[in-house]
Design a protein around this nucleic acid. Structure first.
Lengths: 161, 161
DNA sequence: AAAGCGATGTTATACTATAACATTACTTTT
DNA sequence: AAAAGTAATGTTATAGTATAACATCGCTTT
């Protein structure tokens, strides 16, 4: 029986810079192996996504990028996001229209997200049991699953009264 | 052990008018019991949603509504949608930014959707096992679940090669 | 050097949704 | 029936999300 793997909600105190650096390093090596071009813009957008450490809307990323790159426009951001999503370096949270870094980009997985509506932090599950259960249920109803959107909204421990 | 309940993908030939009429009747009686005002606009928007029989974007609903109600504007539609969502007479499919009628409005459930990317038809599951499994997994990670977004995209039998 | 191609620049526009305030219409109270 | 109160709708404006289309740049391959 495979154990569910997940990242818990972060303590307020952990050092984000480590996460960001580690994520960029993972992305770098992943792109190299895949022959994908991890350009300056793409890298910087991923960095901004991770630095936020919560789901960020595209136009918030754009505003930040513009501080250092004045000619950035919506396509600048959306192209970078398209690349990051395609390589599963980031995910889109559909129920928030916002983007977040992927914690395990090397795996070809469906993203499963736990979202705290209090602190807006997100934990990403990678639960094969859950994924298979969904595939099985879809299959029974006649659908061959290609993509899953799983988003659980609620309140984390620290955000409950 | 509670059986999973779901609506299968429709055959091309079934008579949509029956679905629509039945859905409106259910909505009518539900609103009456709840003391909610099922006004002309709300009723008509729900009818348009059901008549489409696939997820419809808000502005498509607006365009249709405008044919008969020339002063309709975005707030007209979004207010009606807010009402329908609040009473669970309709659901929003987040990954499509589109709205669809709820098949079991009387139940207080999380919507679980199977979406065919070929014919764009949607089947709605109401699977308590699945819902509980998600709640349990969320709970283990420290999140008290309040709302679930479950959307499985893929291809139905008729839309596979 | 030339060709080819992927990435970026640039302008415009489509699509999704809500804020804010005015008016109407229904319901409850008197 | 009149007045008051509240819910719904009308109306204008704007915020927020995303893509189309075409030009240019820069790298790589020939």
């Amino acid at each position: 029986m495979p154990a569910a793997t997940f990242r818990s909600f972060h303590s307020q105190s952990h050092d984000h810079r480590d996460c960001v650096a580690a994520a960029l390093a993972r992305a770098e090596s992943l792109c190299r192996r895949r022959g994908a071009r991890f350009t300056r813009i793409r890298r910087r957008v991923l960095e901004l996504i991770w630095a936020g450490h919560r789901p960020l809307p595209a136009y918030e990323l754009l505003a930040q990028l513009r501080r250092e790159k004045h000619n950035a426009t919506p396509p600048t951001i959306y192209r970078a996001l398209d690349f990051l999503l395609a390589h599963r370096l980031a995910h889109k949270i559909e129920s928030l229209n916002a983007y977040i870094g992927c914690t395990r980009p090397q795996h070809d997985h469906a993203g499963q997200f736990l979202i705290c509506d209090g602190c807006r932090q997100v934990a990403e599950l990678h639960d094969p049991e859950l994924q298979r259960m969904l595939e099985r249920k879809a299959s029974r109803a006649g659908l061959k699953a290609a993509r899953q959107t799983i988003e659980i909204r609620g309140r984390c421990k620290g955000c409950r009264p």
